[in-house]
Design a binder for these strands. Sequence first.
DNA 1: AATGTGCACAACCGCAAACGG
DNA 2: TCCGTTTGCGGTTGTGCACAT
Length: 291
Amino acid sequence: MDVKARDCVPNIEQSSEEDHMELRRGPWTVEEDFKLIDFIATHGEGRWNSLARCAGLKRTGKSCRLRWLNYLRPDVRRGNITLQEQLLILQLHSRWGNRWSKIAQHLPGRTDNEIKNYWRTRVQKHAKRLKCDVNSKQFKDTMRYLWMPRLLERIQASATASTTNSTSVVRTVSNDDPLGGAAQVTSSSYTLENSSTTAASSDSFGTQVSPVSDFTDYYSSSSSNNNISVKNPNPNFLEATQELSGYYYNHGTDFQSLEQNNPWLDTMDASNNLFNAEDFHFLQQQFNFNM
DNA sequence: AATGTGCACAACCGCAAACGG
DNA sequence: TCCGTTTGCGGTTGTGCACAT
């Protein structure tokens, strides 16, 4: 903690006086943001309760801390969660569950709040629509065996696209959605379940459509072979992906039985079943990922 | 144009752990 | 060791926007 912030502890009179002060709640104003930024710039962060008082903010320390960490902090990144990050979130969540802060530590610039929101709004939404529990084995398996490979595939595809046509290719991939491609799988599922023929196209599983360039910064495909090659990769992503590949390798039979026994897939027309031999081939390719 | 609905995200709340006198 | 305060975390709620009806 910054020494100056520590020194800025109000006396008792001030404290009791301000206990009666009306505290502001709700959205922060620009003025409040500036006050907080200015104060932290000169005094540093920490001791949030006294910081709030000293900065003249009619906010709780908690509120100030949250505002700083989730929004004002200079290194915070918001919006446009990349495919790479999406895959990492799915992977880390399958490992740690709702340990948002722990997951966030592996995504530089991302806050636990944002990841939590992402999970609730995107991933849980799919579970809800599939009428299953996000914590169920079925859902977890589907994430692991269907969506995550799909993400990998899309990352690979985008990497290829970025190099084969680096100047003009602009794919309208729903970059915010974990399952833009995989969404075809899930939407196919409930399209049939709900007897709706339009769900796949009319349902906006990711509301924002981002150009592929949002994540191509992270990748460049290898020219020498078909393996994915990553330039300046996020080491966490690399580790997660390799672990994923290893998982498939070690669970080959489970993988096949899942495909045979998954009731969601049973409801799908074979032509719509994107989880097919092609995917299996794709996963086999992943075994050689960056090895 | 008005209203309803769903979504994404910011912010709050309660609790527990960590800290410090 | 105790106890008050601070910090951190995960769950939940509130709000504004976009789109559909």
